[in-house]
Amino acid sequence: MGSQFIFFKQKNSWLEQWDPRMKIVVIFLYAISLFVHQNTLFKAIQIVLLICLWAVAKLSWRMLGWTLLSLSLFFVTTMVYHMLFSAGSQTLQIFGFHLSKVGIFSGISMCLQIAGIVLLLSLLVRTTSPIILAEGLERLLSPFQKWKFPIHEATMMFSIALRFIPILTEEFEKVRKAQIARGNGFHRGKIRARITGLFPILMPMFILSILRAKELAASMESRCYDSNEKRTPIRQYRLKLQDYIIFICSVVLVIISVIQKS
């Protein structure tokens, strides 16, 4: 239970082998180019490229379908908003409504941008173990440690939080069922009754979380953890030629987008 919070499943794909630091940087640059570029066709090509990467990552098409389908309401709302409220002299008349041609294109453009960002993030979390992702972030942000930013603590908290989501989900289910067995009616009745009915679940959950945190802290300390001490990194990351090539391509993409915009 709760494993749905961990999106990563090992598939031994080419994308999984990427250096996590470079993966984060490239995805950031790709997102910038998606937002900066004005040409809708260019954005559509970028989406096609992401779909190709999806295939390279050996991720299921069904998952891609669900990811895009989950955005359908957002796509429809965006399209309707842009078509009805965008300025523009050229209009189309459909069912008595005057729709702006510019609005149609800007709506499509906006939908492509959102789809692109969601696909990018989805690719990132589905092809990278959360711990590797945290390590990548930690190393990318490590220069900020010079200014006393608690980068290590933040990434450690992130990875522990991920580890504890399945346990707390399981605990929540246990407490919820125990309260239902005792006659708590939070799952029926009026909204107010449902909300007040949640307190008997939230309070034990809060106490349990604190107790668990205390036990985990003891266990970590007992295993010689000291946030002030230098730790050996678990993995060695070395940038390869392919990482540099992909990085250069991403930078070129951003430059083209900026030139096109200007």
């Binding site: 990875s159 985990l216 266990s219 010689c224 953890y225 000291d226 730790r231 050996t232 678990i234």
Partner: peptide
């Protein structure tokens, strides 16, 4: 409690956690 002693997400990561803390050679 078996649930509150693991720090890593996977088994290998969890064992490596302690080793990493004592500066074990990578």
């Amino acid at each position: 409690n078996p649930d509150t002693q693991q720090v890593g997400l996977t088994l290998a990561e969890d064992i490596a956690f302690g080793l990493s803390n004592i500066g074990y050679p990578q």
